[in-house]
Design a protein around this nucleic acid. Structure first.
Lengths: 337, 337
DNA sequence: TCGAACTGTCGAAGCGCTTCGACAGCCAGC
DNA sequence: GCTGGCTGTCGAAGCGCTTCGACAGTTCGA
């Protein structure tokens, strides 16, 4: 493995010149810079990570804490982990994965051993022990999701409130008055999971603000429960003409199956919007209008904030990512009575 | 942040004594060791990761390359990533996550910057560019899964062949002669995905060895396709009396739905064994007999091999994890004609 | 024309740790 | 009582890098 000394010798300069030529932190003659660069490439020089951490001030590593609970929806979770890693690489950062049982101990460990320059906290629930920890740890941190008390923290998340209003307004514009929201299992809300609650609350308040009746139901994820929840939501004379779904992929698929079985056609009899989905709703038949939760959008913003503030913690803030409506034909004007 | 000097001063010894007392690499008087340990704790001392990497020979970090393809089954994938991280922590190792588009470039980078002591390669497909790379890179590596050409590599995987035979033999012992295997989507086999192919081939060869008819079908994952595939598998006079499933959770759930719809009861009319599943088959109704793929078992073995061999690459080998049969009541003796 | 201000390069210090060799003090065996 | 071998501790070197201050050599304004 080539060291900086090897490069210096090959280029006929001192090691400090190599360092400056490669980092650009001092002006170096173009001819020298080129010689150094050539030598580095031809020797396959890679700076020793440990030496860099020791001498320099950066480690080029972020810690990512991504708890995996049994009720975590793995595909979405995975997409976020991946999006964070990809965003980090764009800034020349690697990702160190902290597991759940290591969440707090691991955070303290990597922070105080100065293994990482910063921390990215994923999938925050309303009460999250990691939040209190990073608030005290002093290590630069960015949170993806909005904790109950974001005091002192930089947080990034899709603007679920705006997304929900966008869905409702879009439906209202098409003449829909009776809307329903199908959500996650009860447990999710009870645990204080963040955005499902925000969607539910916004749905109820914004429909009320518009003077519209809004029906909401939770649902377990197995197909029987989904069908029952849907039937309940659609029961009675005043059947909703529009459905907003904020639930996982298999549940949305089951809903479409069940509507088909009940001969309720989309969008003729029922308009549907999928909110905050991380998967591709055009694979469904029919394809669904969606206000997606785009992991890359959120994670890019989060990493940008963190990188920009280094070596200091980012300024406290709650940064919302604007929602984006994607029409795929599952919304139609309300049918004539 | 306390350094080793602070600890040395607090304990009234030299820094080398602190180092030896903490690492145990030389004999230190018990009283001294205790004083050092106390000082370290009360100062909250954590060795500087960079300094350790530079001076020592270990970084206490493994790279994990875990590609995420669109057809990857995220929950299983996630479980493996988690199991690797957990196993690594037991040996005081952290996990650096390498993403797919970084697979080869990232591997070279972290290896030649000596950021990691070893590499764990997850989810190997038969032709995998990462394999050739780690074969040449010289960095200690362990592969989870069996590549086409494992030359020079240490590989760990569930013994899918033995698992498949175990399922067949168990059914044969109960008098079953007509068995069917429901597998993954075609694409998986075409891509050369490793273990689905091993299960399929073993199923076909072992049933043949026993002189039994073995029916095999692939299936897409959507419920319509699953039902069609199952109908095809069960068609004809000589309907199979037993079904082995080697497919993802939702497909297995659909199979049970469909059997129920067709009034085929389990296990009275049809015995079922789930092979190589990473999820809990007792949540189904009925609960299914299973020969599980236990991420922790495989990953523990993999990490053990890697840690044991450090700082050298592990001896080349293919280590199979023995399958384990879990009876949950979905297998019965073949019904009287 | 002279000093001030740059520009490009270098040497050396030092980041915090591990580890090697040295050595004082001790005990056991002759 | 002396030697040889332990045991417990220390000082110092050095890992590979960044960065500070120094300093020739050059340019430019007064």
């Amino acid at each position: 493995m080539a060291t900086i000394h090897d490069v210096a010798r090959a280029a006929g300069v001192s090691i400090s010149t190599v360092s400056y030529a490669l980092s650009g932190k001092r002006s170096i003659a173009d001819s020298t810079r080129r010689r150094v660069a050539d030598a580095a490439v031809s020797l396959g020089y890679q700076p020793h990570a440990g030496a860099r951490m020791l001498a320099g001030t950066r480690t080029q590593i972020f810690a990512l804490t991504a708890p995996l609970r049994h009720d975590t929806y793995a595909p979405a979770h995975m997409a976020f982990v991946l999006a964070v890693a990809t965003a980090a690489r764009r800034h020349d950062y690697d990702i160190l994965l902290l597991t759940e049982d290591e969440a707090t101990k691991g955070l303290s460990r990597v922070a105080s051993s100065r293994l990482v320059d910063g921390v990215i906290v994923l999938d925050v629930s309303v009460r999250d022990e990691r939040i209190a920890l990073v608030q005290n740890l002093g290590v630069p941190t960015v949170v993806i999701g909005i904790p109950d008390d974001p005091a002192g923290l930089a947080c990034v998340d899709l603007d679920f409130e705006a997304a929900t209003r966008l869905a409702i307004d879009g439906l209202a514009d098409r003449g829909h008055r009776r809307m329903a929201l199908l959500g996650h299992p009860d447990e999710i809300y009870e645990r204080g999971s963040n955005f499902p609650i925000r969607v539910r609350d916004t749905f109820l308040s914004h429909t009320a603000d518009l003077g519209l009746p809004g029906r909401f139901s939770t649902s377990e994820t197995d197909s029987g429960a989904v069908r029952a929840a849907l039937d309940a939501l659609l029961a009675g004379d005043e059947r909703p003409t529009a459905l907003i779904m904020h639930c996982q992929e298999s549940v949305q698929a089951t809903v479409l199956d069940h509507l088909r079985d009940r001969k309720i056609s989309v969008p003729e009899d029922m308009s549907i919007i999928s909110v905050g989905s991380t998967f591709d709703t055009t694979k469904f038949s029919p394809a669904l209008d969606v206000i997606p939760l785009i992991p890359a959008a959120t994670c890019d913003a989060a990493v940008d904030i963190l990188v920009a503030s280094l070596p200091d913690p980012p300024d406290p803030r709650v940064q919302y990512v604007a929602p984006e409506y994607r029409a795929n034909g599952s919304v139609a004007p309300v049918p004539a009575p």
